[in-house]
Simulated assay, not measured.
Amino acid sequence: MAATPRTPSPAEPGAQPPLGLRERKKLRTRVAIRQATYRLIAEQGYDATTIEQIAEAAEVSPSTVFRYFATKEDIVLTDEYDPVMEASLRSRPADEAPLLSVRLMMIESLTSFMETENEELRQRTRLMVEVPAIRARMTETMSDTAKILAQVLADRTGRSADDLKIRIFIAAVLGALREVTLYWGEHDQEGDLIAMINDALDTLEGGLLL
């Protein structure tokens, strides 16, 4: 099964402070629930997998599952990468072009994800394509990521995170990421996902010319 997300070491850009004991226990519980969910879905399908089965497989109670994840879709979609992406983006030079900063942050985060959780990424992408409820929930959860990244860019530029240009910028970048991921999944995960994301961001940078 997939390993836990790799947090940068203190010497790396974007490093996070070491987690305390309580936070490590919470992380282990979230990972155990997520791994159990992916294992059960691989064995019997998404619809047949229940919260009760997930709780039993993860050796926690159903109420614990719901304490960490509001819905079954959230178990599939939630990872630990938002804080890592935020720290990575904040570590970029303040005078760097925002699209370049976001591009490098996304590639760094995705590369780490693919190195440590490649099978989980592939299974998640298959489920995004196959399960309408997961696709719908993905759009909702991406709004949380958008708020985090918008705040980083707002802090860099002295604007409000609610600035319309910042919101449009983040929406365009995350929308491109969503469509590339779905396209990759719809086409049997063929091709280099990172290269495809770079191509999509090139399209944005070029002014959406076809």
Rank of each mutant, 00 (worst) to 15 (best):
Q53L: 14
R124G: 07
L210I: 09
T7Y: 04
T29D: 02
A15I: 08
L40F: 12
M106I: 08
R28Y: 04
P98H: 11
R167H: 09
S101H: 05
M128G: 03
P93L: 06
F113W: 09
P18M: 10
A176I: 00
N118F: 10
Y38Q: 10
A36G: 15
G175K: 07
P18Y: 10
L164K: 01
S160P: 02
G14V: 07
A200L: 12
R22P: 03
E59L: 03
E59K: 14
E115K: 15
D144P: 00
A15W: 04
V129H: 04
Q16Y: 05
E73F: 00
N118G: 10
D155A: 11
E117Q: 14
V31P: 00
R22L: 12
K147P: 02
E186A: 15
A87P: 07
P10Y: 04
I134W: 04
L40A: 14
L21G: 00
D47I: 09
W184I: 01
V84R: 04
K165F: 05
P5R: 09
I134D: 01
V180A: 03
A2I: 07
S160G: 09
H187E: 07
L89W: 08
F66S: 14
A97V: 05
I148R: 11
Q53I: 07
T116F: 10
G175H: 09
R28E: 15
T203L: 11
G207H: 06
I148E: 01
R137F: 05
I197Q: 00
Q53S: 13
K26W: 01
F69E: 10
A200H: 09
K147Q: 12
I194H: 00
V84S: 06
